[in-house]
């Protein structure tokens, strides 16, 4: 707390528009460890504990304005800031990649305000903050996966009123969603949702997995790692404790089917990973590459070593 009280206007101005590279080793002395003050962290941890105790249930929390815009991952950043300690190793990915601009920006933010070690290796990280993907490498016990969530409410396209959707969750009344999926099948022959595909958590709460591709949904089921979800603008936190049942909604005669491009990665040759399509020219040329850069690099390195 004391650090924030003595901070000058220049310090605050620098936080919004810094253009220097990573600061000196060790956290920025002008800010509390992890940027948030200890009382705020405690408030967020309380919300997290409640969220873990009621898997899939959205817990309101006093989300703060962060020095990054809403929609850029403020929820995930606040969750990470509340759980991170000096011994943690942080990995940040956006679209599966460590080197996308927003992932770089968030990683630099934490390097600056915590001084913790960062990594691109999924296996080495203790905390992984992600936007839109779950790493291909299976996570292990003791790891924490922090999702950035734009809209925590899985029903919002069907019912915009928060008061109304809260009632539906309380009554476990998810008929609206089932009808929507049924209508998709009648109209298109398929469920037309390909990302942010709704899941039932622990057989009780309907939950938005955040806009990950449906391809990633099965990874959430009985995941050994703790999954935390932060929605900053919407001021909600939710969680899936380790080894919890997470089922993608489907019907007996129309089972859930995750989709991926039917191709192999042009760089590492993987036929299992989720692929990004890269347009290479304006004559229809395209190639497919792994969206998970760490997974792809590891496979390439292994192949080179074998040769």
């Amino acid at each position: 707390m004391s650090a924030t009280q003595t901070r000058s206007a220049e310090g605050a101005a620098a936080a919004g528009g810094e253009h220097r590279s990573r600061g000196p080793a060790g956290p920025d002395a002008g800010y509390n460890f992890g940027y948030l003050d200890e009382n705020t962290k405690r408030m967020i941890r309380r919300a997290l504990l409640k969220a873990v105790a009621i898997p899939g249930h959205q817990v309101p929390f006093g989300s703060r304005e962060m020095p990054l815009p809403y929609g850029w991952g403020t929820g995930g950043i606040q969750v990470t800031a509340a759980v991170i300690g000096p011994d943690d190793t942080l990995k940040v990915i956006d679209q599966g990649a460590d080197d996308t601009t927003n992932a770089v920006s968030i990683r630099r933010f934490f390097a600056r305000v915590t001084g913790v070690e960062t990594t691109e290796r999924t296996a080495e990280a203790t905390i992984i903050q992600t936007r839109h993907r779950i790493p291909e490498t299976p996570l292990h016990e003791g790891q924490v996966l922090v999702y950035q969530v734009p809209m925590p409410e899985p029903l919002f396209r069907l019912e915009p009123s928060v008061t109304e959707t809260r009632r539906m969750h309380a009554l476990a009344d998810y008929s609206l969603m089932h009808v929507k999926l049924y209508e998709d099948i009648v109209r298109h022959g398929h469920i037309a949702t390909s990302y942010n595909y709704p899941v039932m958590v622990n057989g009780r709460y309907l939950m938005s997995p955040s806009p990950i591709p449906a391809f990633d949904n099965p990874k959430m089921h009985r995941m050994p790692a703790l999954q935390l979800f932060g929605a900053g603008r919407e001021k909600r936190i939710y969680a899936v404790p380790p080894w919890t049942e997470v089922r993608s909604l489907d019907f007996e005669d129309h089972p859930f089917e995750p989709v991926r491009a039917d191709a192999a990665c042009a760089l590492c040759g993987s036929r299992e990973s989720y692929l990004d399509e890269v347009v290479t020219d304006d004559r229809g040329g395209r190639m497919f590459v792994c969206s998970d850069t760490d997974y792809c690099h590891t496979r390439q390195a292994r192949r080179e070593a074998a040769e």
């Binding site: 815009p69 809403y70 929609g71 850029w72 956006d94 679209q95 599966g96 996308t100 601009t101 927003n102 936007r131 839109h132 993907r133 734009p150 390909s194 990302y195 942010n196 806009p211 990950i212 591709p213 449906a214 391809f215 989709v259 991926r260 491009a261 989720y274 692929l275 990004d276 399509e277 969206s291």
Partner: peptide, 15 residues
């Protein structure tokens, strides 16, 4: 935030 990369989601929409 719509200008942030969404190519993972867009890819699944494409498929």
């Amino acid at each position: 935030h719509l200008k942030l990369p969404h190519y993972v989601d867009f890819q699944s929409e494409l498929e």
